[in-house]
Design a protein around this nucleic acid. Structure first.
Lengths: 255, 255
DNA sequence: ATACACGTTGACGTAACGTCAATGTCAACA
DNA sequence: TGTTGACATTGACGTTACGTCAACGTGTAT
């Protein structure tokens, strides 16, 4: 029994375009070509095609399928195992995305449903959520969940006034830092004042302070681009400058 | 503060190609273009870009993101909800794929680990698995799990000899059917003999037989391409011919 | 002779960029 | 002032697995 491209496509339930494509990439070639150039397939090709479709249903790429069916020594078990790993990985990613979407939905609902009196509390919660989404794991890993918990609690206890002070202070630090940056000397008086202001700012969120912790945080300012960016968007190099200023500042404190 | 394309890309952690692409599709255009044609971005663009990346992390398509950020009346909640649905759907699909891969792995292991004495049992199990993978749900839905269970059990009880008989019979049916097909008359003697042979064949798997069940199955031969294909691969139209022969055969039986 | 179904190759489009290539611009240094 | 090197531009191809034309050739029935 021989089949034209149309018949084979109907038997197997794929489009003729698909068969032509498989021919093109050498995945499934017709048994022979008729004098007028028509593709002619045989029973073998039908079987092969069914094999191909089986693997396709498992989500394999055509290139991989080609290897599987052309090389009979190909280790199918290994291929299946690694493929399963890939699928599990994908599943994990999708789960993470779903969680992420859920969080975003949460914060959205909070914002719309919040009464005016609760607005500030909701606002802070949202900031926390945002923060968690951006840095979540890393911070916990570095400082321990306990420390993070405490910081969050302190943050939630801020009054609206304190919050505004803190914001203002953050702005002042940047302004002074920009000035100090011109001197290009992180040990300059102004730069050291910035480091001190930065410490004061931290105490809005931390309930204990050690020079080590301060120096450690500063290191993150240059190592993690998400922090770097906060200062560098005002002036490239500002994050590193602050880092150096804080190193000098905390070294003096420790001696 | 103004940023060149390179600075912005570093601040936000994306490639310059990405920024050019976003410009190309009108997702994020620079604040202005310098006299020499350079793209120049401002702080606003940085913020917008961060928003874009936020949505991108959630797995939104760029086209959707464009709508979200350009139209402030866009219903973000609805977008998030429907997006979550999409993700859940994807997750379900991946789960199904994983199950499928697991089954395939199972049947593979059975084949390799099987001792010679168990070969035939393993072989039958594999056939069943294969079958289940191909038709699983539909058959159960049509006949009820109970009937399917019984049929599977009967199948597993076949001796090697019976199995071979059954295979031979299936081949004979096709051969006769091809002959009968030439007459183009499903009520012809030969065609009716085929219907009877088909009944006999069925009794290898079914422990009860009614003309209704037989006629019903025949209907599936023309309605479900996976069955059609089994006969049509020998001769287009064969499945339908058998269907008609069986209809006539069972109608006579019922009157 | 004509109609009509069926076949062919070739090309573009998809999503979101990566990766060249060819060429222009800018600041700094010898 | 010429040159170097970093940075910018546009343009184009490649990626995956086909869908969807277009332009054109074949086979068969009327």
């Amino acid at each position: 029994m021989e089949y034209s491209i149309n018949k084979l496509s109907q038997l197997a339930g794929v489009s003729t375009r698909t068969l032509r494509y498989y021919d093109e990439i050498g995945l499934l070639e017709p048994k022979r070509i008729s004098s007028s150039g028509y593709r002619i397939y045989g029973k073998e090709e039908l079987k092969l095609l069914q094999h191909i479709l089986l693997y396709k249903e498992l989500g394999f790429e055509l290139l991989t399928i080609k290897q599987i069916i052309t090389d009979p020594h190909f280790d199918k078990r290994r291929a299946l195992l690694s493929h399963r790993e890939k699928l599990l990985e994908q599943k994990k990613q999708i789960d993470a995305l779903i969680q992420n979407v859920n969080k975003t939905l949460d914060s959205l609902e909070r914002r719309t449903e919040m009464a005016d009196t609760e607005r500030f509390e909701g606002f802070k919660k949202e900031k926390l959520l945002e923060n968690e989404k951006r840095y979540g794991k890393e911070i916990c890993d570095k400082y321990g969940e306990d420390t993070v918990e405490k910081a969050n609690k302190k943050f939630m206890n801020l009054t609206e006034e304190e919050f505004k002070e803190q914001e203002q202070l953050a702005q002042d630090i940047i302004a002074n830092l920009k000035e100090a940056f011109k001197t290009d000397d992180p040990s300059s008086e102004l730069a050291q004042k910035c480091a001190e202001m930065h410490k004061k700012w931290l105490l809005y969120f931390w309930d204990q302070y050690t020079p080590e912790m301060h120096a450690n945080l500063a290191k993150m300012y240059v190592e993690d681009e998400r922090f770097t960016q906060y200062y560098d968007k005002e002036q490239p190099g500002l994050a590193k400058f602050l880092y150096e200023a804080i190193q000098i500042y905390t070294n003096q404190k420790r001696t």
